[in-house]
Amino acid sequence: METALSILSGLFFIVSIYLLLSKYVIRVLLGVALLGNAVNLLIFTAGRLTREVPPIIPSHLDVPAVATANPLPQALILTAIVISFSFFAFLLVLSFRAYQDLKSDDTETLRFAEPKNEPTPPLGY
């Protein structure tokens, strides 16, 4: 089952990279959203999978009675999900504002910070 999930995670990566490479900000954003899931799946799979046994210790025991799912990747992913959501929201609003003010969602024309034919910096001291 790790194999299947590895392949699925690879598919996530391929699609998200393909979207990141496109020239339209909104597609890039979709790519970012997918990339978060791809990475989470990668971490999850790398921590090995266990079916259906969550890492919860019953109240009358000190350690779990049976082998549980690996808790460490879960803890990492849990915060990663929330952070990638905040990040995604930030990028979404950023591109929305850029679209409003520059009237474009094409990365070819969104080059305010690095304009074409930038003059050379002044020589001298």
Binding site: I56, L78, V82
Partner: peptide, 12 residues
């Protein structure tokens, strides 16, 4: 702390 849940999920 003892069952599924916690600050992140609750907050969401």
């Amino acid at each position: 702390h003892n069952e599924p849940g916690g600050g992140f999920i609750g907050g969401l």
